[in-house]
């Protein structure tokens, strides 16, 4: 019985600590939400208590009526979707090849990829700019997608490969005996089992473009091709502080993200593989 009490106390302590952590994690987020609905402009004029200034929707109407917010959102969504889809296809295909085939220069290629992902893509930004200029990719969304895609491949191929390595080879071999070709094995066996890591990959490569600032700044020029990061950043520069408008814009980005995450985290943590792999 004493054991049970100790366990309950332990559990309560863990719960309390987790709650305190949660508050720390939530604090800036709650504050942004409140700022988005607060009258006024600068953060200096806001009350320190969330929702302490009253309630207004003027920042949202301002975003939709007086700024290009919707266009930024649409552009960023297009870029993120394409980057995510293409990264999944290219990286997982590469990972499958690296995991299951042996060929000339395989080792050096994998090492090269490990070394390449050391560099942030913008180290080569002058060259990327000129190459995009040559293939007429400047000031286009697809030019940006290409840059992101190429930057994603080295890291993510490694990530998916180390996962595919854990899938028993006996599965592919039995399928090959049944007459399946490589593409079939890849699509029907590897991809479904590797789904958790594919989902993870999809999410990470989908989120990255929303955060990026340097490449859109360099590649996209015209007003109708701006992205959210560029637009939002313009609200809180050194010269002006429109924190509340920024908060409203940021909130509209974050909400779909958060909903998406809460839905997909179930897929990401549920058990997988075990059912398919009965040796």
């Amino acid at each position: 019985m004493g054991n049970k009490v100790i366990k309950r106390i332990n559990l309560t302590i863990v719960l309390v600590i987790l709650t305190i952590f949660s508050l720390g994690v939530l604090y800036p987020l709650v504050y942004v939400v409140s700022a988005a609905f607060s009258p006024g402009n600068s953060i200096a004029s806001l009350s320190i208590i969330p929702f302490g200034d009253g309630f207004t929707l003027e920042h949202f109407t301002h975003l939709f009526n007086n700024t290009n917010y919707l266009i930024w959102f649409k552009n960023t969504l297009i870029i993120a979707l394409w980057t995510s889809i293409l990264t999944i296809i290219v990286a997982s295909l590469g990972a499958y090849v690296f995991s299951r085939f042996s060929f000339t220069m395989k080792k050096s290629m994998m090492l090269l990829m490990l070394i390449l992902q050391i560099f942030p893509s913008f180290v080569g930004m002058v060259a990327i700019y000129v190459i995009l200029l040559r293939i007429k990719g400047l000031d286009t969304l697809w030019g940006l997608v290409l840059v992101y895609l190429a930057g994603n491949i080295p890291y993510n191929t490694w990530m998916v490969k180390s996962y595919v390595d854990t899938i028993p080879k006996s599965l592919d071999e039995s399928a090959r005996i049944d007459g399946a070709n490589h593409l079939h094995i890849f699509r029907k066996i590897i991809m479904p089992i590797a789904r958790p890591i594919i989902v993870f990959l999809g999410i990470t490569s989908f989120t990255a473009p929303w955060m990026d600032y340097i490449f859109p700044k360099m590649i996209l020029r015209s007003a109708d091709k701006q992205t959210l990061a560029l637009g939002l950043f313009s609200f809180v520069t050194d010269k002006k502080n429109e924190f509340t408008v920024f908060a409203a814009g940021a909130l509209l980005v974050a909400i779909p993200f958060i909903i998406f995450f809460i839905i997909t985290q179930k897929t990401m943590v549920t058990s997988f593989g075990n059912a398919a792999v009965k040796e």
Partner: peptide, 21 residues
Amino acid sequence: GVFILPYAVPSVVSMLVWQNL
């Protein structure tokens, strides 16, 4: 769900928010 939230928010946004806070 709560702990995932910082990851769900684009980092440009959260860093700019922290900068202001």
